[in-house]
């Protein structure tokens, strides 16, 4: 008989608001894995936990701000990035991370996303991309693959999705990578790297959403989408940026890796005289 192993402590104790559990996420949802990676990166960072701030918009992914036991701001839909910009510029000592969903960041907040990248503001953005608006019940959004089914694309999504990596690269981000929820180690490494990287960093993490996206696209269980990642993911960081679009229908590769890592100067407000 298997004996349950009781642990006194979890490595993330203190970083997760235990008094807010249970969380709202569905069984098989990938967001928790991404949050776990973010939390691990905070621990590994060696940066004072009190200096870490997480900002979210609205969505299932946006709930992360509510579960992390650090200074956390759960803002309005799409506005996490500009809120984070204000925090960072008003107090440059803060290590500011925006954790939100694909719809929040790339649809309603899309303008803020590209402009913060253009300005190369020194914040880290983690995008849990589940190809749909999970929170509102599985509508199509800016990353829904062409032809995919959703509650507002019952005949197949007629729009082409953003290739977020290419978008962010073009907009001017210093660091852009893409992984999935099976790439736990890589996500932790890249979040950690992004904390210390001056300028705008964007980490896209593909995450299963069995309820909003999977069930209408033959990926009934979280594990189905996870298996799909395992089959299709190709680590080819040299792939041309415009070839990184995601198409789940066909037997197409899903490219993952670090695609942009450059040293453009981070945004600095103009200072004629530095106040002591």
């Amino acid at each position: 008989m298997v004996q349950p192993l009781l642990v006194e402590e979890h490595p993330l104790d203190g970083l997760i608001r235990a008094d807010r559990m249970p969380h709202i996420w569905c069984p098989g949802c990938g967001i928790g894995i991404v949050m776990r990676c973010y939390a691990q990166a905070i621990i590994n960072s060696g940066i004072d936990i009190e200096k870490h701030v997480v900002v979210s918009g609205i969505g299932c992914s946006g709930r992360v701000a509510g579960y992390m036991n650090i200074d956390s701001y759960h803002t309005t839909h799409g506005r996490g990035i500009p809120f984070a910009v204000g925090l960072k510029l008003a107090n440059p000592e803060l290590c500011v991370t925006v954790f939100s969903g694909d719809g929040d960041l790339a649809a309603i907040g899309g303008n803020h996303l590209i402009h913060a990248a253009r300005r190369n503001i020194d914040i880290t953005v983690i995008c849990a991309n589940n190809f749909n608006y999970g929170m509102t019940g599985g509508q199509m959004g800016p990353t829904t693959p062409y032809g995919a089914l959703s509650t507002t694309s019952v005949y197949g999504c007629p729009e082409h999705p953003f290739n977020l990596v290419n978008l962010l690269a073009a907009a001017g981000a210093n660091f852009v990578s893409r992984w999935t929820t099976i790439h736990v180690r890589q996500v932790i490494d890249d979040v950690l790297y992004a904390f210390n990287k001056p300028g705008f960093s964007f980490i896209e993490v593909l995450a299963p959403c069995p309820i909003g996206f999977g069930k209408s696209n033959d990926l009934e269980q979280g594990v189905d989408e996870t298996l799909l990642y395992r089959e299709r993911c190709v680590h080819e960081p040299d792939t041309a940026l415009d070839k990184l679009g995601i198409d789940l229908r066909e037997d197409q590769p899903i490219y993952v890796g670090r695609f942009v890592d450059r040293e453009a100067p981070a945004y600095q407000p103009i200072r004629l005289e530095v106040e002591k």
């Binding site: 809120f83 204000g86 510029l89 008003a90 107090n91």
Partner: peptide
């Protein structure tokens, strides 16, 4: 810039309002 403050010209007024709140929260 003369007094060690921040002037940031945002992409729109939704962003302006949000960034002001972030700065105040800090």
């Amino acid at each position: 810039p003369q007094i060690g403050g921040v002037y940031i010209q945002m992409e729109d007024e939704m962003g302006s309002m949000a960034t002001v709140l972030g700065a105040s929260a800090a």
